[in-house]
Amino acid sequence: MDQLSITRDKARAYLKKVQRTDGFFPYKASGDPSTEATAWAAIALCKDGEPAPVDALRALANSQGTKGGWATRQDTGRPDWTSGPATLALRVAMPRLKPVLASEQKLDTSSRRGLDYLLESRTDFYGPTARLLLFLTKGRSGLDYSRGWPWDPECFHWIEPTAYCLMAAKIPNQPKKGALGEMIELAERFILDHHCIDGGWNHGNNITLGAYLPSYRLTTAEALLALQNRRDEKKVDQAVHYLSKQSQSDTSAHALAMSILALAAYQKSHATNFDLELQQLMARQKDDGSFGHDSSVLVTALALLALETALDTDDQLLVMK
């Protein structure tokens, strides 16, 4: 067996080992349930069939809030940014598990409700008074300001939650026009508006108080995955270039995994630096099969997905159809 397959199998085994009996995955072994870790692990394992990803999807569906969103863990308050990854997991993993889940209407419903939540939850951005002022002074176009999603419903919008929610809305298939399509366009514009001068994206603003702020490798990769249908945009092209330039830097398993996933989505998998990043990522695997600080379940799931890009070039889970 080649090294890539061995690495992948070890990562897969680690994930299955740390899955909780209730179907959830924790952020680290023996931890409490994590919506985000469960979502990414379900995606990473969905080609395996049951029981691991099926149990994970059922756990997500069962922990969905009444408005269709998810909190970081059940019983931890109102829905938050993890609604993006959870919806993405249902949308991406369910079609792969159709033979097993065909009779489970609840998961289909859960996926749709997740999208509805993303649609309904995004306008806590300007308050009602501010939006009224925008409407009165600029007309309907005043309300078409670019906007994405916040980490917490009461807060500003940021690049990463916007990227996660955009991925959920667009992968595997972009929705038809309509409210969801309009939402996607505004969120794409939000990310593009915050493009940093050095080519990529950081967690928030590209400029603050007159100072240009630098990009982060991880955030740039996440944003690129969310903008993969906008590859004709100059800023997107610059971001791919920025990300490719980072390949010589073996920075972290988390950034490497996301970078590989993003470069694969932009068909850069033939590039030498892509192979280099794969080698760097594989070298970071720990003896127990995990990746990342403290044997992170989240990073291990992302690493497994990244390793899959080299094995199944025609069947990429995070590439828009």
């Binding site: 951005f125 300007y126 308050g127 008074t129 501010a130 939006r131 009224l132 002022l133 925008l134 409407f135 009165l136 002074t137 600029k138 005043g142 300001y145 670019s146 807060c155 500003f156 919008h157 940021w158 939000f190 508006d193 915050h194 928030g204 603003n205």
Partner: peptide
């Protein structure tokens, strides 16, 4: 309901801000 109240939106051009911050 409240349209027509009349007001100015000056200063509400920040692209990631919250008007009720």
């Amino acid at each position: 309901v409240v349209a027509g109240a009349g007001a100015s939106a000056a200063g509400l051009t920040g692209c990631s801000g919250g008007g009720d911050s």
